[in-house]
Nucleic acid binder design. Sequence first.
DNA 1: TGCGGTTATGTCAAATCAGACATAAGATCC
DNA 2: GGATCTTATGTCTGATTTGACATAACCGCA
Lengths: 110, 110
Amino acid sequence: MDDAKRQRLEAAGWRFGSVKDFLGLSEDEAAYIEVKLSLTTALRECRVREGLTQVELARRLGSSQSRVAKMEASDPTVSLDLLIRALLAAGASRAEIGAAIASDEDRPAA
Amino acid sequence: MDDAKRQRLEAAGWRFGSVKDFLGLSEDEAAYIEVKLSLTTALRECRVREGLTQVELARRLGSSQSRVAKMEASDPTVSLDLLIRALLAAGASRAEIGAAIASDEDRPAA
DNA sequence: TGCGGTTATGTCAAATCAGACATAAGATCC
DNA sequence: GGATCTTATGTCTGATTTGACATAACCGCA
């Protein structure tokens, strides 16, 4: 992972372990965060496409507007569970969610 | 969702809301559980393919053998977060995880 | 049979995450 | 300017999730 990507992720509010750890296990750590970011993007796209407000989606989901906002802001306190439940509530198919996770489209230019 | 699928999911230890709820939001609820089951299957496959024991995977993941066992048993106390982190630790690619989520292969005959 | 290695199940304190609320900030209208 | 709609941010308390531990069960194999 290059510095640009690291900076981008840290800017999004993520904290990494020590620099040593950063070179160790963190291929996985980075991939995990990228998955989250991908789903974050997909969620906003899906919600807007469906013409839903955050409040409406929150109601469907049994959650609150603030939590939806945090989801779309990649807030670290939002779990993958919540993201995926939100996507389903927003009308995303399993295929769409799978594609978002698999996609590398949010990768910055190498 | 037919009774067979419901039964299958409930047998795996999942609890549903009331019957009324069951007919309401639960397309999503069911999809969510199916995603979990798909990842569960993918995890076991991936771990075995990589020749890892549950203990080894747990160490890589910074978790415990019992938790890995629960993941593979579709225990309701295991979150999607943990499943996906486990898959990454087991060497699964984002593409593989995405494919597992999108896949309908665990769907029973209609 | 007993013995390693592996996996399954039950429980619990500590950590994390959730929904809710307040409130601020933007946008768009009049 | 204000009014309204939407989204963003901060924080609190309760609920869920987690790693850890104990222990049981399973599976070859000698």
